[in-house]
């Protein structure tokens, strides 16, 4: 629903992040992992922009880049037209973007009481004075539907869902405009997850927030998002309005993802016995996720591949209001 009328909040331009890794303990040859590879997209004000993809496709790396929690290899990030440069410690820009992590257990400091955890970013950003920390935290807890009394507790005294509320309260404590949600409910039980999803939708409506919502669950995409961005092997395969995507996506990989949530019943599921398995005899080292590839990252798993895809890399191309990274959409 990016009608073009909504102002642009985030503009990611040709962003890449490469990691160097060593193949294994006894193999000292250095290997480059292109965790995020030449990625560009825009997020508009008030939208819920979802990013989906399987494990290791680069979702968390991308969220860390947006937050400046890791250095980028190349490319730019613009926030409302201003270039984000975290090295300059431009706190006033940074506080507008906050993140909520997947794991509500490890993302909170276990030694600090809740009110210290929740108020710290606000104190650091000089939104409140230290002496107002308690009062402010109580207010923040109310906003996420938690009893004020929890301010004196430690993280380990809370349940998973309550901890996730605390991380959301902490993120909201600096009045951000953009919230990056990295799998915010995948560690939670169904009833708790329902509460958190409802809360996120309420906060989104009430405060006119913009979300980048990372998940591997297409059902949540359909439930929450305006726009869906599909990643594979560090690259974007497709960006599409959600309703259009569920009517029939264009990229062959998106099709596989969608079919996988529609496959109901024991007999239907048998077809996935080979999902994700690359036939070793059919592998083409010039394409796929290998480090020296020239062709398409998805080549080795693709049902629509042609010779052209081996030595040429497709680019994200506009196709109406959908963008697809495929020669044969």
């Amino acid at each position: 629903m990016n009608t073009g009328k909504k102002p642009e909040v985030l503009n990611i331009n040709k962003l890449s992040k490469y990691y160097l890794s060593y193949g294994s303990l006894f193999n000292f040859k250095r290997n480059i992992i292109k965790a995020v590879d030449n990625v560009s997209f825009k997020v508009y004000k008030g939208d819920i922009f979802s990013i989906v993809g399987e494990t290791g496709c680069g979702k968390s790396t991308l969220s860390k880049l947006i937050l400046g929690l890791t250095n980028r290899t190349s490319g730019e990030i613009f926030y409302k037209g201003n270039i984000l440069n975290y090295n300059l410690k431009k706190l006033n820009l940074r506080k507008k973007i906050q993140i909520v992590f997947q794991d509500p257990y490890s993302s909170l400091n276990p030694k600090k009481k809740i009110y210290k955890i929740v108020s710290l970013p606000a104190i650091k950003n000089k939104i409140i004075k230290k002496k107002d920390a308690l009062q402010y935290s109580m207010q923040m807890l109310k906003n996420v539907g938690l009893d004020e009394d929890y301010v004196f507790k430690f993280p380990h005294e809370l349940s998973g869902g309550q901890r996730q509320r605390i991380s959301i309260a902490r993120s909201l404590s600096v009045n951000p405009e953009l919230l990056v949600l990295d799998e915010p409910v995948s560690a939670l039980d169904v009833s708790v997850s329902a509460q958190i999803l409802n809360l996120l939708l309420d906060l989104h409506e009430k405060n006119n927030l913009t979300y980048v919502f990372i998940t591997h669950d297409l059902r949540l995409v359909r439930h929450m998002a305006d726009t869906v961005c599909v990643m594979y092997g560090g690259k974007i395969m497709e960006i599409s309005p959600v309703d259009k995507f569920f009517d029939g996506p264009l990229h062959p990989y998106s099709k596989v993802l969608l079919e996988s949530i529609l496959a109901y019943g024991p007999k239907n599921i048998l077809q996935f016995a080979d999902a994700g398995n690359i036939n070793i005899n059919n592998i083409n080292i010039n394409a796929g996720t290998g480090k020296n590839r020239r062709g398409c990252v998805y080549y080795n798993l693709c049902s629509r591949r042609m010779d052209k895809c081996i030595n040429n890399e497709p680019d994200l191309k506009e196709n109406g209001d959908v963008q697809v990274n495929c020669f044969f959409p």
Partner: peptide, 19 residues
């Protein structure tokens, strides 16, 4: 602990063992 696609494969293989 697995993502959707990998999880489907594991389910499919359990299903195969049943058949």
């Amino acid at each position: 602990a697995l993502d959707v696609k990998t999880s489907l494969q594991v389910l499919a293989l359990i299903e195969k063992m049943r058949f």
